[in-house]
Design a protein around this nucleic acid. Structure first.
Lengths: 223, 223
DNA sequence: GTCTATACAATGATAGAC
DNA sequence: GTCTATCATTGTATAGAC
């Protein structure tokens, strides 16, 4: 963790201009997230990035070890934030109702992302979507090793669907996550083309309702 | 298209050893598909590839224009083959029965990929899965511009579900394609972890049945 | 501890000889 | 059609200033 070495330096930071306010480490973080989200990981070179952030070329390696390390740091922070929101919503649903409906549980899984799209965290969500599909082996390792937040969803779903075995619940959650992660620009572009412009993701409420209709039905079939 | 310049050259080809049988262009194609499927596009350098194929470094650029052009050429050929199999199966289903069930239509969409996994085209399918997620902007452009084969599925599904508007049919096909394309090694690794080893894609028949259960239910809900 | 300037090996691409 | 030599660009490593 970077610590401020002297009081004088901290004071200098406070009195500096607004855009230069954040430290080098954080400026790299913000600019990288923005550029990666917009252009993709591979299409942003270290020279592009450090120039845009107004820092030296070597600063990324100093603060994050490597370009991959930077990607990983951004991914960790944002993924943790999103998973925490999901966990909070799930807790609200399960503690109020002893046996919540499948649809309510799935809503806790889906709605945080739709919230982010609507506020200033849109860039962070775009970054996460890209990192999920373009990320390197380390990103993928996190994606499938860090499943603790998903286990809570499996538990809740199994309580809601006692007729299904735990194995079937996990299979259907696997399919449901596929639907939720199918959010790249290319996916929606094909949707628009295939529907001759009739289907767009702009209608957030309609999209959420359709997602819940489809995934709930898939989950509850035969149970 | 590369043409043989002299009869003598063609004769020399026929008499050559089996592994050196294919022309330079095709040898590059085969070795590239194999290496890209196994290691990913970015992790195979032009020097790795040309060394493995036993051709000169500059041969890829001569025959395919660029590394991206080579990726694109492989993708085009394999995607066309897969879509053709899907179209043939769909035609068999629709011409035999005036009003086929949704499940039968979706089976025509899903089963070609499961066939490829079981025979020597496994590498080609692995390549397609990788290209879909790791591919560049040109790959994505093909993915969402070339939707003619999907339109036939929309038509068939709408006939099977007259209560749904065409718009809703396209939305649900969009979700269904998400489930079908959620096939990367990382996806299955997470599934295995989350289920403590209980869920694996090894049981092809079971996987196909689960896919059809889930997607059919999502398609037919409310109709 | 932080930041800078600079050098380095590896990559995809290309020109021109044969 | 094929090959050699060479190019600009990439991510990374390091020595040294402050």
């Amino acid at each position: 963790m970077a610590t401020r070495s002297t009081p004088a330096k901290a004071a200098a930071k406070i009195s500096s201009a607004a855009e230069n306010e954040a430290g080098t480490r954080e400026r790299i973080f913000r600019e990288a997230e923005r550029l990666f989200a917009r252009n993709g990981f591979d299409r942003v070179s270290m020279r592009d990035l450090t120039l845009a952030a107004g820092v030296n070329l070597a600063a990324v390696n100093y603060h994050y070890g490597s370009k991959d390390g930077l990607l990983l740091a951004i991914f960790r922070r944002r993924a943790t934030e999103l998973n925490r929101e999901r966990a909070q919503l799930l807790q609200q649903v399960t503690e109020g109702d002893a046996q919540p409906a499948v649809r309510a549980i799935l809503a806790a899984l889906i709605t945080p992302a739709t919230r982010w799209i609507s506020d200033e965290r849109r860039i962070s969500l775009q970054f996460l979507i890209r990192a999920r599909s373009e990320g390197n082996a380390e990103i993928r390792a996190i994606l499938y090793h860090d499943v603790s937040h998903l286990r809570r969803f499996v538990d809740a779903l199994q309580r809601a669907l006692p007729a299904l075995s735990r194995r079937e619940v996990v299979w259907r959650l696997h399919f449901t996550l596929a639907v939720l992660h199918h959010n790249s620009a290319a996916d929606y572009e094909r949707l628009r083309t295939l529907s001759d412009g009739a289907c767009t993701p702009d209608d957030r409420e309609g999209l959420l309702a359709r997602l819940l209709d489809y995934t709930s039905a898939g989950f509850c079939t035969g149970a």
